[in-house]
Amino acid sequence: MNQNSRGGKTQVERHPGGSSFGLARGAATGIVAGLVVERAAHAAGSDQIRIALIGCGGRGTGAAVNALRNAATKNVKLVALADAFAEPLENSLRAITAQCPDQVDVPPERRFVGLDAYKKAIHCDVDLVLLCSPPGFRPAQFEEAVRAGRHVFMEKPVAVDAPGIRRILAANEIAKQKKLAVAVGHHLRHEVKHREVIRRIHEGVIGSVRFVRIYFNSGGVWFRPRKPGQTEMQFQVSNWYYFTWLSGDHIVEQHVHDIDVANWILRAHPIRAW
């Protein structure tokens, strides 16, 4: 992948008995993207929902603000942050505090930096963790959150390869046994216009859908130049979108949204790719 990548095209063949979930969600059977995690955590007996954010980039910052501003309850507080690097963590903290000043309580001792920082945030006194770091790290972080008995919102994709998906599946079985709420960031499933259009398609307004072709057009993403003294690992994690072991490449990381919509329309999932 390079910075000027413009998108991809995928053909989907319908499997008559297939799942209605998207590519990442279809593999992670039982992960319910439509679940309102805040309410589930509240129903578990906590008066206040305490949140840890893991991965403090733009998406993580936005997810934290979304959680704090949810319509179900305002008794929600961000209490821990974790990121591989200190600078995005501090930037995220400032941005979230500016938007939700009364719902942020993250003193220095609950700001964790490094590749293992997620463990420290998860094991703070929290109810819900937001997993928004590069998806190559998602399986290990999800496993840790489930072991700790935390409710989870995790961004898509849930993994970047088949071994990672199998780890997600196994951890999700444990999450179900523990009655933990788990949601995935396939936001189009919750968008009113998408839901209405696809409801009508399923009612047969345009007839029987036999074939779907999907596209993802994009103007490219950020790139962070190498800093003096930066290790190769630090450089790759900082520019995770360009490294398949961290992002899964464009189709897995971004085009999964459109693949999910195709699966939703067809109420099936791909059985072959060519």
Rank of each mutant, 00 (worst) to 15 (best):
P135M: 05
I271Y: 08
R111C: 13
Q48G: 09
I201A: 04
P135I: 03
V32H: 10
F223G: 00
E109F: 04
A273R: 11
F21E: 14
V158C: 15
A27E: 10
L53A: 04
V221I: 11
K227E: 15
A24W: 01
P225F: 01
V113G: 03
L266F: 07
I96T: 06
A52S: 13
N4P: 00
A162L: 09
I49W: 03
L266S: 09
A273W: 08
P225A: 02
A95L: 15
Q99I: 13
G22F: 05
V104K: 03
I51Q: 04
R25F: 02
E191D: 15
I168W: 01
Y241T: 12
E38I: 14
L68F: 01
P139C: 02
A33V: 11
D249L: 04
H255F: 12
D258I: 09
R150T: 11
V197A: 15
I206R: 00
T97R: 05
A63K: 02
V104D: 05
A121C: 08
R224F: 09
V160A: 01
A181I: 10
E253K: 07
D258K: 05
I122Y: 02
K156Q: 09
T10I: 14
E87I: 08
F137G: 04
Q230D: 15
R138V: 10
N217H: 05
C132R: 05
R14N: 08
R226H: 06
H257D: 12
N70Y: 03
V12F: 11
G62C: 08
V106P: 01
A117I: 05
F235M: 06
G220T: 01
K156W: 03
T73P: 06
E203M: 04
G114R: 00
H42A: 14
G57F: 07
I168F: 03
A52I: 02
G45Q: 06
F142E: 07
Y215V: 08
G220L: 06
A33H: 02
G22W: 00
I198N: 04
V65F: 05
E253H: 12
L23T: 09
V79G: 06
G55R: 03
G45P: 02
H186W: 02
Q3N: 00
V113D: 08
E38S: 14
A117H: 04
G26E: 06
K119I: 10
G8V: 08
V76T: 13
F85V: 08
I198H: 00
E90G: 04
V104Y: 06
R50P: 05
V158Y: 01
I214F: 00
D161L: 03
T61E: 14
R69E: 15
I31R: 05
W264C: 09
Q236A: 13
L53Y: 05
G60I: 04
I259G: 10
E109S: 07
A162Y: 11
F142K: 06
H15V: 13
R50E: 11
V104P: 09
A95D: 15
